[in-house]
Amino acid sequence: MTAFSVLDLVPVREGEGVREALAATTQLAREAEALGCKRFWVAEHHAMEGIAGGATSVVLAHIGNATQHIRIGSGGIMLPNHTPFQIAEQFGTLDALFPGRIDLGLGRAPGAGPELQRALRKDLAAASQYFPQDVVELRALLTGDVELPIAATPGLGAKVELWMLGSSLFGAQLAARLGLPYAFAAHFAPDHLDEALALYRRDFQPSDALAKPHVMVAMNVFAADSAEDARLIASSQQQSFVALRTGTPGRLPPPITDYTQSLPAPARAMLDHLGQAAAVGTPGDVRDAIEGFVARTGADEIILCGATFDPGARLRSLELTLDAFSVPAG
């Protein structure tokens, strides 16, 4: 049976600030736990007015205190922005606070321009080249499987579940070689989905952490009582995608009725392309779309994405989605 998890970017909505964004994310995590989701992940982004999850480990500590048993983790930490030692300490601390609940999803793309590179005091292009070695070093700092000249305290011996994230063949190759579970970001970059999953499964090498391939795929999911309402709540994220691709990112905007009809052809085509990893509609519509996507990908888990301007709409969307899978299809 396919497991369901939730990915959240801690969206900052127009007319609100970071405090409200963190409160909404915390409530979403509680709802995900109550509904039986397996994981709740937060993604690292920096210097973006509309995303408040940059201090990812701090956000996760707050979510851990607000929940009881759901796994919490990064979807992901962009390792070139950091040193392996720093991340080992941070997630070793999280594991000590919330034992048996911590996931550490790792990504290679720094997603940073020159201003952020200066702010982080990092040559991110050079750091990205060392990503495979840094992943191996980070794993050794946590597990001790390779002797290192320094030990991370906290960190060494922490039971952190490492994941490789990706939207290209690179992450799939590295996950297979290291024997890690693999999460594919189809919700914003679906182009290489099928090829990457096939490569990962074909080349997978069992490790102490994982005996066989394990795949999670991200989908944008918006469920509502009517298809019209679902399309409406989805329009806020669609606006954000268009703004990002046109170089004008900002806070999450209010929904717009029939938003896509007002767009030029290139923007509509971009959203249609992303729609191959989306489910928007009534609970039945969403169930059918997710089942079709699982049949296509063979995913062991689906991680549900999709920010809404009204936080209550996302809570309702998650509830309807999970309820749709608790009732056998007629």
Rank of each mutant, 00 (worst) to 15 (best):
G247Y: 05
G247F: 05
I256K: 09
S128C: 11
P253C: 03
G36Q: 07
E16K: 14
M78E: 01
S128A: 15
G50K: 09
S235L: 09
F241S: 00
L28Y: 08
T308D: 02
A269K: 08
K212S: 14
G36K: 09
A198L: 12
L141E: 04
L180W: 14
H69C: 01
E44F: 06
L315C: 04
F309N: 00
I150R: 12
T93R: 00
R108N: 03
A119W: 04
P80V: 01
S167L: 12
S5H: 11
A198I: 08
A43S: 15
V136P: 13
G306T: 07
E228F: 10
A55P: 11
L271E: 01
P190Y: 09
A218D: 13
T257M: 06
G17Q: 05
G50N: 10
A289Y: 05
I303Q: 08
S236Y: 11
R108F: 04
L315G: 14
L35V: 10
A211G: 12
V136M: 10
Q133E: 15
D310I: 08
G17D: 04
L7A: 09
A29E: 04
G284E: 13
A125H: 13
G15D: 04
V221F: 10
D203N: 14
H62A: 15
A289D: 06
L193T: 15
N65C: 10
A277P: 12
M270I: 00
E195S: 14
I233Q: 08
A198S: 14
L9N: 07
Q276W: 10
G179A: 08
Y130H: 15
A175M: 08
G312Y: 04
A34E: 11
A307Q: 13
A61Q: 11
F91M: 00
A183L: 14
A277L: 09
A127P: 12
T83R: 00
A230H: 07
A23N: 08
D191K: 15
R245M: 15
I290Q: 03
S317P: 12
V286T: 02
G250V: 00
G107V: 02
C305W: 14
H273V: 01
A295M: 07
V12F: 03
H82K: 02
G312W: 05
A243G: 09
L252E: 01
S326W: 07
D285I: 09
H46C: 02
G64Y: 06
R202D: 12
R202M: 01
Q90C: 00
E14K: 01
S236M: 09
M270F: 14
L318Y: 10
S236Q: 07
H214D: 15
H69Q: 13
S235T: 13
A152D: 03
A224P: 13
E49S: 12
D258F: 05
F98K: 00
A218Y: 15
L210F: 11
L197M: 07
T248V: 13
Q117I: 01
G312V: 07
L199E: 05
R245K: 12
C37A: 13
A189E: 14
A96S: 12
A3D: 11
I302M: 03
G107S: 05
P181K: 03
P206K: 03
A55D: 02
A88M: 04
T308N: 10
